[in-house]
């Protein structure tokens, strides 16, 4: 559905993308996961024919993003990161405009957007600029879907959105997947990784890893321990000073700790912490999260860069 081969892009001295290779299958939810400035938007703009790559090739639905951009623009859906509908048109007018641009009607494809659109239909005569953030999102997705695209690009649809609205948005994506639509979505939220079929982790324009979320977690080499004590603020520093520490990172109420030694004995660590005055210490072995993997991969990437 989407094929990306060796795509690179620089802006002046800044390398935005470096040798990106990705294949996205039909009907897949593919997540591009990385922080701001990692290259997510640049890649999506290249795939949506809005930006030319410096080198490499990419096709979407078999159409080349550079040579066949005119044909390609008719067939994909795109929801940019910034709200880009007409704020002084009503909800209904925006939707009709998008349908007519693509030579179709709202009625012809209503079944595709019904689940999403019916939530904002009561406000259909309201100007788009007067909608709440969550409603704007639903309208933007409806407009991106109205010409029945087979593949849709969503650039950070959930950034700055509260956890509740993020969940609702992902539910909408799951329902679109049922219609056989391939979804290419970027996000800075690591916890959204598990909702994708496959993900690529991106940092500084380079892919750190690309696989299913389960496989990426499976490749994590170290054991991860969640540690908590009654001296929350000191715990992190004390763990980082421990003789065999590999890494220690804040993770909500706990600190995720990995040890250099395979033969790590938690009892030894507990003793060390007790000597430093910690009490109520708990050390539990846990499954690493995608964020643990991202942190470890980022660490490796920096080590290679320094070497």
């Amino acid at each position: 559905m989407i094929q990306i081969h060796g795509i690179s892009k620089s802006f002046g001295n800044v390398v935005a993308l470096q040798d990106i290779n990705i294949e996205v299958q039909e009907g897949e939810i593919f997540g591009l996961i990385g922080p701001d400035g990692s290259g997510k938007t640049t890649l999506i703009r290249i795939l949506t024919t809005l930006l030319l790559p410096d080198s490499g090739t990419a096709t979407v639905m078999g159409l080349d993003v550079v040579k066949e951009y005119k044909n390609l623009r008719r067939v994909f859906g795109y929801m940019p990161g910034r709200f880009s509908l007409y704020e002084d048109l009503t909800v209904e007018e925006n939707l009709e405009l998008f349908a007519s641009i693509f030579g179709t009607t709202v009625e012809a494809n209503y079944h595709l957007i019904e689940d999403i659109y019916k939530q904002i239909e009561p406000f259909k005569s309201r100007r788009a600029g007067k909608l709440s953030g969550g409603m704007k999102q639903k309208l933007a997705l409806s407009c991106a879907m109205i010409h029945q695209p087979k593949v849709i690009f969503l650039d950070e649809p959930t950034t700055g959105v509260d956890p509740v609205s993020r969940q609702e948005f992902w539910k909408m994506l799951k329902s679109l997947k049922k219609h056989g639509i391939s979804i290419f979505v970027s996000t800075p939220y690591m916890d959204e990784a598990s909702l994708c079929d496959r993900i690529a982790l991106i940092q500084d324009g380079k892919l750190l890893s690309i696989d299913t979320p389960t496989a990426i977690v499976g490749q994590y080499e170290k054991e991860v321990y969640a540690i908590v004590s009654n001296k929350k603020h000191e715990l992190l520093q004390d763990l980082r000073r421990y003789k065999d520490v590999e890494s220690a990172f804040l993770f909500g109420s706990h600190i995720h700790y990995s040890d250099q030694k395979v033969s790590f004995d938690p009892r030894e660590l507990i003793q060390y912490l007790e000597q430093l005055g910690h009490g109520e210490i708990e050390v539990d072995k846990i499954e690493p999260t995608i964020e643990d993997c991202f942190l470890a991969l980022m660490g490796n990437a920096n080590k290679t860069a320094d070497a």
């Binding site: 990385g34 922080p35 701001d36 990692s38 950034t159 700055g160 800075p188 690591m190 940092q203 992190l236 990172f249 804040l250 964020e291 991202f294 942190l295 980022m298 660490g299």
Partner: peptide, 17 residues
């Protein structure tokens, strides 16, 4: 006000430190 939105996981933690 949402000081860490979009920031990478390492920097986000450094920020909290």
């Amino acid at each position: 006000d949402e000081p860490t939105g979009g920031v990478d996981p390492v920097t986000r933690r450094e920020f909290w430190e």
